[in-house]
Simulated assay, not measured.
Amino acid sequence: MAKEELGEEEAMLRGQADIWQYMFGFVDSMALKCAVELGIADIINSYGHPIALSQIASSMDSPSPDINCLSRIMRLLVRKGIFISSPHPESGDPLYGLTHSSKWLLREAELSLAPMVIMENHQWPLAPWHCLSRCVKEGGIAFEKAHGSEIWNFASANPEFNNLFNEGMACTSKITIKAILSAYKDGFQGVRSLVDVGGGTGTVVTEIVKAHPHIHGICFDLPHVVATAPKYPGVSHIGGDMFDAIPAADAIFMKWIMHDWSDEDCVKILKNCRKAIPEKNGKVIIVDVVLQPDGEGLFDNTGLVLDLVMVAHTSGGKERTEVEWKKILEEGGFSRYKIIKIPALQSIIEAYPV
């Protein structure tokens, strides 16, 4: 067989392997969800060293766990680098330990992605993904096609989903705020009042106020969201609609808010931000992805994935390149901006009216 034919045959075989891998990509996330639900990382962590499969099984809240099923799930998660496996020095049986990845699955850890894994892999958020082709053919909103209402109305009417969503957002907020506070220390200098627009239950603004006690924090979100928010020192909770008006402050803070909305809606939000801050020294602090479609950075691929999450879960939301950010900022009344890299999935976009 000619060398060219062998090359083509090998390329086609690799292509087939890729499709098999992507076809069953959901299995990785389901195995990850299973590990969180069973508390596998927490069980291993409680021992303080790698442990046997029987020890994992006996520590579960189950009278008769299926060890064969568990071993097959762990085999895949070891292959994916979520856990590590090494032979017992005497018996040779595998001992399972934590990796830097599985440490993010610890449910009681200060920083954990476990609630986000549970939320994103729940049947409600998964259902809209089956509507992507309909969105291409017909337009419209995937979440509404799957559930009969947009995500925010669905959350308002469904307390279980509302709690699931808020817990997922709160865990990512803790991770992001740590990155913000380490890399944006000077950004809060001179800010006496700060409104966290779409602040959920107040996780982020509370941490900002703790680190910068001179700031009065305002957590601003929809009434049904702030209704479940606990009280924090130095933080007020205000219910309202950011499309109507935003409480006045020296600075407006928005983490993972703008990507939920279309360009037109973002411009409306920015214009309301513009009205809420002082002409001089006022600013908007946006924490969001700056998309790098051809980038090789640690989170650049995840940025493209999140862009499709916006298609599945929002009403016109999108991740944006710097060019796209510049356009909506200018239309919203912010003539200057700068992008500040932080050790996180998102960046800080600091925008000023003059």
Rank of each mutant, 00 (worst) to 15 (best):
T176P: 06
Q123K: 11
T99D: 03
L194C: 05
V197R: 02
K174G: 08
K145H: 13
I215W: 12
A127I: 02
H122L: 06
G148K: 02
N163W: 04
R192Q: 11
N158C: 11
G200E: 05
I180F: 07
R192E: 12
I141N: 11
L106P: 00
P128D: 14
A157H: 08
F188Q: 02
I177E: 08
L164Q: 12
L181R: 06
G148Y: 08
L98K: 01
A157Q: 14
I208M: 00
F161Y: 14
H212E: 01
H122R: 08
V209C: 05
G148T: 12
G148R: 11
E108G: 01
I175L: 15
V204M: 14
N153L: 13
L111H: 14
H122N: 11
V117M: 14
A211G: 13
T201G: 05
K185L: 07
A109L: 03
E144Y: 04
V204L: 14
K137A: 11
D196N: 12
I141Y: 09
L98A: 05
I177P: 00
V195A: 00
D186R: 02
W124V: 13
G199R: 03
S193C: 01
V205P: 00
H214N: 12
L126K: 08
N166Y: 06
A109E: 01
S182V: 09
N121Y: 05
H130Y: 08
P128C: 12
P159I: 11
R192L: 08
F143S: 03
V117E: 06
L181S: 11
F161G: 09
I208W: 02
H214F: 10
L194V: 04
S193E: 10
E150A: 12
N163Q: 10
G198Y: 07
D196F: 06
G168R: 10
G200Q: 08
P159E: 07
L98F: 00
A155D: 04
E207H: 08
E108R: 00
L194N: 05
L181T: 04
G187C: 02
